[in-house]
């Protein structure tokens, strides 16, 4: 479903010259699977997800999403994905209904199908009260619900969640996580980035721990726990990051 190979992204930075945000990462994510990208701030998670959602172009390497290459067919990929970013990213001066409908229309959905789909989503997420409420008057939790509804309105096979629970209270965060689990159960391929270990432990089938633009370790949580002999995922995370710091550090590939 998602195949990432030697993906690299560099920028020109005033202080450090060429700055590498992603340094040749590779991973695969399958349908029905939740793939977790784990890492501290500046590890390169958002850059990787922006490339997968075709907002950014890679400097080198490839990423194939549902059979389409990010370099060759970015337009086709956009029809295959739903992207939820860390900030709720919804239009303040639109109602929930207008906003979801707008994105459905951008995805060129048939009017009847869109109507049915929206009715279903609003029912499932218990958003009928929000239909005619301007987004500016919503709480953060409500906004995140609308944001997810917007991302799934066209029923994409791939969903990308970039720190989707960041800034949410524990109740709303749990609700979001439950929704993600349900979507995975429907056979969607989900990429989920976070720096909250417990969330990842609960949700993800496979994880990749990233730091300074590189994947330090990758596999199922069980494999990684076995590899490092550490049961607590937070401790495991610290250990992986610490070991990588000890090994080597190129000054030119400082964090994002």
């Amino acid at each position: 479903m998602i195949h990432v190979r030697r993906l690299r992204k560099s920028y020109q930075d005033l202080q450090t010259g060429t700055f590498t945000a992603l340094d040749g990462i590779s991973f695969d994510a399958m349908p029905g699977q939740i793939y977790g990208l784990l890492g501290p701030n500046g590890a390169g998670k958002t850059t990787a997800l922006r490339i997968l959602s075709t907002v950014l172009k890679p400097t080198s390497g490839t990423a194939v999403v549902n059979g389409f290459d990010v370099n060759k067919s970015p337009e086709k990929i956009r029809h295959q994905i739903g992207f939820v970013s860390c900030n709720t990213a919804i239009y303040d001066r639109m109602t929930a209904w207008e906003l979801v409908r707008y994105f459905g229309q951008l995805y060129e959905m048939n009017e009847d199908k869109l109507q049915m789909r929206m009715e279903g989503i609003f029912e499932r997420f218990q958003m009928n009260d929000l239909r005619n409420l301007l987004c500016s008057k919503m709480s953060t939790g409500m906004m995140q619900k609308v944001s997810i509804a917007r991302a799934i309105v066209h029923d994409p096979p791939v969903l990308i969640f970039d720190e989707a629970t960041s800034g949410l209270d524990i109740l709303v965060a749990r609700e979001v996580l439950r929704t993600i689990e349900q979507l995975a159960d429907q056979g969607k391929c989900i990429i989920f980035s976070s720096h909250i270990m417990t969330e990842v432990q609960r949700l993800c089938d496979r994880i990749a721990i990233m730091s300074h633009g590189k994947i330090l370790t990758e596999g199922t949580i069980e494999d990684i726990v076995e590899r490092y002999g550490e049961r607590d995922i937070e401790e495991l995370f610290y250990q992986v990051i610490r070991e990588s710091s000890k090994e080597k550090r190129k000054p030119s590939t400082a964090g994002a």
Partner: peptide
């Protein structure tokens, strides 16, 4: 500023 640009760029609109 509102973060909506990224969402719009990831939509099929060119």
């Amino acid at each position: 500023e509102r973060g909506t640009f990224e969402t719009l760029l990831s939509s099929p609109a060119k």
